[in-house]
């Protein structure tokens, strides 16, 4: 009686990680609903823009921007969501706010290069979709801008 119980438990324990690994591969392989639109960028500049966006992501992480700001609603709730900030012609404004601070946001001493990279990251995020929703009639599964 006891031995079969141990076997059943072991099978149930192992089954879940197998399901987990299969599901993780599914996330990797299924096409995303709204792929990043790098095709709009001239081919010769694409890799450079992507590299700068990756460096910008490092800036985002190093300065812990996510403690106050969110991307697609995931992150802090103290400041605004920054998913589509880059699309609203706010580039110059963002640079000023980052440098000088505003309301509860402290001033950050970012270099010009770091700011450029951060903007490249936000532009890449902006190209990937649309958030927050603007109406109750918005598609519940998100939409490409």
């Amino acid at each position: 009686m006891h031995r079969p119980a141990v076997c059943t438990i072991a099978i149930r324990i192992l089954l879940l990680p197998c399901l987990y690994v299969a599901y993780t591969f599914a996330i990797w392989f299924f096409p995303t609903q709204s792929p990043v639109h790098v095709s709009a960028i001239p081919a010769e500049g694409q890799q450079q823009v992507i590299n700068r966006a990756y460096t910008g992501r490092e800036v985002w992480l190093n300065y812990a921007c996510q403690t106050c700001h969110s991307i697609y609603g995931l992150g802090g709730h103290l400041g605004p969501d920054l998913t589509n900030t880059a699309s609203e012609g706010m580039g110059a404004y963002i640079r000023i706010v980052v440098r000088e601070g505003r309301l509860g946001m402290p001033a950050f001493n970012l270099t010009e290069r770091e700011l450029d990279d951060l903007m490249a990251y936000l532009e890449m995020i902006n190209a990937s979709g649309h958030y927050p929703p603007r109406s109750l009639n918005d598609s519940v599964f998100g939409a490409v801008r």
Partner: peptide, 8 residues
Amino acid sequence: HYFSPQPQ
């Protein structure tokens, strides 16, 4: 995050 670009 239904809204983010994860697979439909």
